[in-house]
Design a protein around this nucleic acid. Structure first.
Length: 273
DNA sequence: CTTTGCACCTGTTGGC
DNA sequence: TGCCAACAGGTGCAAA
């Protein structure tokens, strides 16, 4: 479910409700996530204060005193603010109680998510250490992307989704950024001209920033909801993702769908070359 | 080093 | 209506 815009939307919703507050209780009902939740995670968290709630790639970073709680939502994870005492549903695995009475509830049907407590700022944690640049950061531009792409033979779409190249883009936004830049997803990464890489870097920034503004993407299955349980609006702005056989928004040709590394890949055969 | 395919899970959808 | 295969927003890992 969640790519960078969805994680950022959740972060923005939660931050004002948790920053500067103490964690007074943690309830873990299901430890079998992507990696088993440490048995003493609750003990280690209770009593600490949340200095800041930040994001790196698709990880939420909870700065708690001298440690960092890494939360990843995987494919189906959600974090919602619920009323204290509201009864948990089937896949509600973890509750984090904050001192003013808010409860942050983690649910994740597929259990690909992760909750990991790391020492310090976690910047040397194996899950964060080798991540590529933030696409919305000031230092990300065509030059940086060009350097990362020039030696890669894989399809440009796969490179865009490789977190060593750039973080934050999953299947939806990789498809959308390539459409916005007019680039065929199957082109070998190294084969793009420098001007086209510039265009791609700008397109990725634009698409992600707009999606954050719109509060993320909620497909018709209603998968993604923000911390208040509400859907996003960016799906109305999608140009190619999930639009197989529908007319291209620019040229009216039918959008094509192919499979690339077992992932659905959408593009316009006329606008993207 | 890069690239590929699989694995981890549950829920939904579409074809028969 | 029921059954079953295919597929779904991520990503670490083993193997080539």
């Amino acid at each position: 479910m969640p790519e960078l815009p969805e994680v950022e939307t959740i972060r923005r919703g939660l931050a004002p409700r948790v920053e500067g507050r103490r964690i007074v209780d943690v309830t873990v009902r299901e430890r079998r996530l992507r990696w088993p939740v440490e048995r003493d995670l609750e003990v280690a968290l209770v009593g600490r204060s949340v200095q800041a709630l930040q994001r790196r790639a698709k990880y939420l970073l909870w700065r708690v005193d001298d440690a960092t709680l890494l939360v990843h939502l995987g494919m189906s994870g959600a974090l919602r603010l619920v009323e204290a005492g509201s009864p948990p549903h089937k896949h509600d695995h973890i509750d984090l109680h904050v001192e003013d009475g808010s409860v942050v509830r983690f649910s994740d049907p597929r259990r690909f998510g992760a909750w990991i407590l790391a020492p310090g700022d976690a910047s040397e944690h194996p899950l964060l250490r080798d991540l590529g640049p933030e696409p919305l950061g000031p230092d990300f531009d065509g030059e940086l992307l060009w350097q990362a792409l020039r030696r890669r033979r894989c399809a440009i779409k796969l490179a865009l989704m490789d977190s060593h190249v750039v973080v934050g883009a999953g299947n939806i936004y990789a498809n959308e950024a390539l459409f916005a830049a007019g680039i065929r997803p199957t082109n070998p990464a190294f084969s793009l001209s420098r001007p086209r890489v510039d265009r791609l870097a700008q397109a990725l920034k634009r698409v992600l920033a707009r999606a954050v503004q719109e509060g993320g993407t909620t497909l018709r299955d209603g998968g993604f909801v923000n911390s208040a349980g509400q859907p996003g609006y960016f799906q109305q702005t999608l140009s190619v993702y999930d639009r197989a056989a529908q007319p291209c928004v620019r040229c009216k040709r039918a959008i094509r769908v192919i499979s690339l590394a077992q992932r659905s890949t959408y593009y316009c055969p006329r606008c993207q070359r």
